[in-house]
Design a protein around this nucleic acid. Structure first.
Lengths: 117, 117
DNA sequence: GTCCATTTGTCCGTATGTATA
DNA sequence: GTATACATACGGACAAATGGA
């Protein structure tokens, strides 16, 4: 797996990676994910980062964590449609719009600097 | 305020305390909460613990955090779901996609110009 | 029942990144 | 440029739940 996109925080990249793994059947419904320590070691991140990634998946109902046992893929997990509310999508679109606006400004600055040379 | 119940983790106790404060009007809608550093100092906990407490309130939609500004109690206007149609969101996504495509072309041009030097 | 290894949960202190003013 | 504030990450520590020896 890659965690060097740099476009997004490591914990989100890890969450995506795990979600993909679940979607591809690498971690079938009901199965146990590698332990947090194991995931941290594998991906070369701190345990807290793994926890943050797992929280994303928990919030979307993809996995459940059982104290003292492990983290398990929910049997009714639905990777395709992670039950998102319209308002949640709206928020994401707003965030994307804002990010894109800032990125555009940065590109404009680069273009001006480029022209001055 | 007390954080020594010991029956529940400090971050949950702090979340309860803040929720009560909001409910009692100590932090009215639209007002800004004390900064994370301030709350940590006040309640003698680490900033991470304050973050965890605030995340609870964010997840329940009670507050919103604005990067570089602060954490604010949501107003009813904030809480109420904006009436957005799915088609409107789809249109926004199409706009974003087109914007992103153009921006990508500009970055590619910048990259080529950069290599020519 | 006790001990112990494993695993998640939480907390701390610090550091760095990024947004805002 | 400086200051403030939130966001994220790291590493270490201990608590709590689980299950097997």
């Amino acid at each position: 797996m890659r965690l060097d996109d740099d476009s997004r925080p490591p914990y989100q990249q890890l969450a995506d990676s795990l979600r993909d793994g679940i979607g591809r059947g690498e971690f079938p419904p009901g199965s146990q994910l590698p332990s947090i320590a194991e995931l941290a070691e594998r991906h070369q991140v701190a345990k807290g980062t793994v926890q943050a990634a797992l929280r994303v998946l928990r919030d979307s109902g993809l996995v459940v964590a059982r104290h003292g046992k492990g983290v398990f893929v929910r049997t009714d997990a639905n990777v395709e449609e992670p039950e998102v509310s319209l308002s949640a999508v709206v928020r994401q679109v707003q965030d994307l719009t804002e990010h894109l606006r800032r990125l555009t400004e940065r590109v404009e600055e680069l273009e001006q600097a480029s022209r001055r040379q």
